[in-house]
Computed example of a mutant assay.
Amino acid sequence: MVLFKKKDLNKIDQYTQKNGVRLVNLVDSKSIVAEQIRMIKTNIEFAGVAKNKLKSIVITSPEISDGKSTVSANLAIAWAQSGKRVLFMDADLRRPTLHSTFNLPNNEGLTSILSGQGSVETAIRHTVVGNLDVLVSGIVPPNPAELLGSKQMENLIKWAEEKYDLLIIDTAPVNLVTDGQILATKVDGTVLVVRYGKTQKTTTKRAIELIQHVEGNILGVVARGTQKEVAGYGYGYGYGYGNENSK
């Protein structure tokens, strides 16, 4: 069964930015893909137990169009469906997608809070998924790294960790900008998303090195796609500098 049509893996995906990502765990929770997402969730939980706590996670990727937003959105839903109160935050202030995914306005969000022009109470929104709240990016700013590295961002993360069972943050590709490195220092763990047939081993290794350089805690690597991507859409989960699903 073809769940998602095969695309040119080296082409930047403009679809998700305009239309949002595919919420498989919401619309087809009994599918193979949804079950794979739940397996990833379980693996991340085990990694978190080994580090004693898991209240906040950053999900990033080496490059654009590796699938981090699709993985993070479906993981947020999976955790919410399991009974945890989840806040899903769009901290990709370069190419945000969360507002499109949940069909929400993007005039007020994370950037509004960090710049002092909005409040948490009005910016955070409930979703149709029980236990899942979202914080969209807000207006794309000229200084994303500065905002994400601010004391206000640190305070917001601490607030979310107290208010919710889990905070999931989607952020920009770590090999391209410093946003992922900055956030990796403020949360309990970082998950890296790579894509089979697109992400090179060298770029995956570079991404891990960048996170480790700031002493970020890498929980694992999610490999999106399979060797037979034309026949379907799969996920794998592994640890380290890469696996068989990277070139």
Rank of each mutant, 00 (worst) to 15 (best):
Ala145Val: 09
Leu93Ser: 02
Val222Cys: 07
Ser137His: 04
Val194Arg: 04
Gly180Asn: 01
Tyr15Arg: 08
Gln152Val: 08
Gln81Pro: 01
Glu121Leu: 15
Leu183Phe: 04
Arg94Leu: 07
Lys55Arg: 15
Leu176Met: 14
Gly197Asn: 12
Lys84Pro: 12
Glu45Ser: 15
Leu75Gln: 01
Gln36Tyr: 12
Asn243Lys: 15
Gly242Asp: 09
Lys53Ser: 14
Leu156His: 03
Thr60Asn: 09
Ile218Lys: 05
Lys18Gln: 11
Ser31Lys: 10
Asp165Cys: 04
Met39Arg: 04
Gly83Pro: 12
Tyr235Ser: 05
Arg125Trp: 00
Gly180Phe: 00
Ser150Lys: 09
Leu147Thr: 03
Lys30His: 10
Asp28Tyr: 09
Leu156Ala: 00
Pro62Tyr: 07
Lys11Leu: 09
Thr111His: 07
Glu162Ser: 15
Asp66Lys: 07
Lys186Cys: 03
Thr185Phe: 04
Gln14Ile: 13
Ser100Leu: 08
Asp133His: 15
Ser72Val: 11
Ala207Pro: 04
Thr42Phe: 09
Asn155His: 13
Arg94Asp: 05
Thr199Ala: 07
Gly220Met: 05
Leu210Pro: 05
Glu161Ala: 02
Asp66Gln: 11
Leu26Ile: 15
Gln181Ser: 07
Pro96Asp: 05
Ser56Ile: 09
Ile40Gln: 05
Glu154Cys: 10
Asn243Glu: 15
His213Glu: 11
Asn103Gly: 13
Asn243Asp: 15
Gln227Ala: 11
Phe102Cys: 00
His213Gly: 08
Asp170Val: 02
Val58Ser: 07
Tyr239Thr: 12
Asn52Arg: 13
Lys151Thr: 09
Phe102Met: 01
Val49Lys: 13
Asp8Ala: 07
Gly116Leu: 08
Lys53Phe: 10
Leu183Thr: 04
Gly232Asn: 08
Tyr164Phe: 06
Pro173Lys: 14
Val222Tyr: 03
Ile32Pro: 02
Gln17Asp: 08
Gly216Val: 00
Val33Ile: 14
Asn107Pro: 00
Ile182Asn: 02
Ile169Gly: 00
Ala184Gly: 04
Pro144Thr: 07
Leu132Asp: 06
Lys7Ala: 14
Arg195Gly: 00
Ile182Thr: 06
Val140Asp: 06
Val24Asn: 04
Glu162Ala: 14
Leu87Trp: 03
Pro96Phe: 02
Gly116Lys: 08
Thr122Gly: 11
Gln117Tyr: 06
Leu3Ala: 09
Val194His: 02
Gln212Glu: 14
Gly130Gln: 11
Leu87Glu: 02
Lys41Gln: 12
Ile32Ser: 06
Lys198Glu: 12
Thr226Leu: 09
Ile113Glu: 13
Pro105Thr: 10
Val2Gln: 04
Leu183Gln: 03
